[in-house]
Amino acid sequence: MNTEAIKDLLYKIADDQLILGHRNSEWTGFGPLLEEDIAFSSMAQDKVGQSWQFYKILNELGESEPDTLAFMRNAEQFHNCQLTELPNGEYDFSLIRHFLFDTAELIRFNMLSESSYEPIALLSKKIKGEVKYHTMHANIWIKQLGSATEESISRLQKSLDYAMPYALGIFEASKFEATLKQDGVFEGEVVLKTTWLAQVAGILEQTELTMPSIDQVQPLVGGRYGNHTDHLQPLLDEMSEVFQVDPSADW
């Protein structure tokens, strides 16, 4: 198996989870209602914990310690898609992002449960059950608020239209697509995206929201190759502040 290809896959998954996990944690104390405050905080804890497990596999493949990988890299060394690094904005945007991203993530872990690379398969089998709770949460709120009031529908629609080009960036092809598929590690972003489009459309159909015409949306890519928006570096600076001051601190 091609270790470089596997590392590339692991980095993008782990970085997506760490960065969105951090964004989710920014809702702690600010949720629009207590239950949502707890939900975003719990999903943050899940995602950061899951990212640690993926960094651990990278560590076993010769990369640095999980904490070093999380806290000591600069923006251009991160492989997360740009969708995950965008600021939380208002609740409507956070909810739309959560829906679009976690729908893709659950499909990804379902696919990776069959991976020929055992550490990824075992971990994916485990965490797909956890992520199921995230998609369940997203779907409940999209269905409710996507059919509620004029304001909730128009806010969600606006966020959906804004987020879609970034969401398509989730599926930016890696330079290892063919190798990963050939080795049975991962079926690839194209398969993932096809399933994702159908599932997203399936939920939106149950609301007053309109699925953007995907053919006319220009995907915003680059994140997988270290090209990020200006929002990522300040997030990393804040996230690693304690570690930078005292790498041995326990908290």
Partner: peptide
């Protein structure tokens, strides 16, 4: 009330019979 709770393994519920909030260890 919510599939999330004070720990990753708990969800939060309300009982209309005894009018108490309670938590469940989540099925996973």
């Amino acid at each position: 009330k919510t599939p999330f709770g004070p720990a990753l393994c708990r969800s939060m519920h309300y009982c209309h019979d005894c009018l108490q909030a309670f938590e469940q260890f989540k099925p996973l």
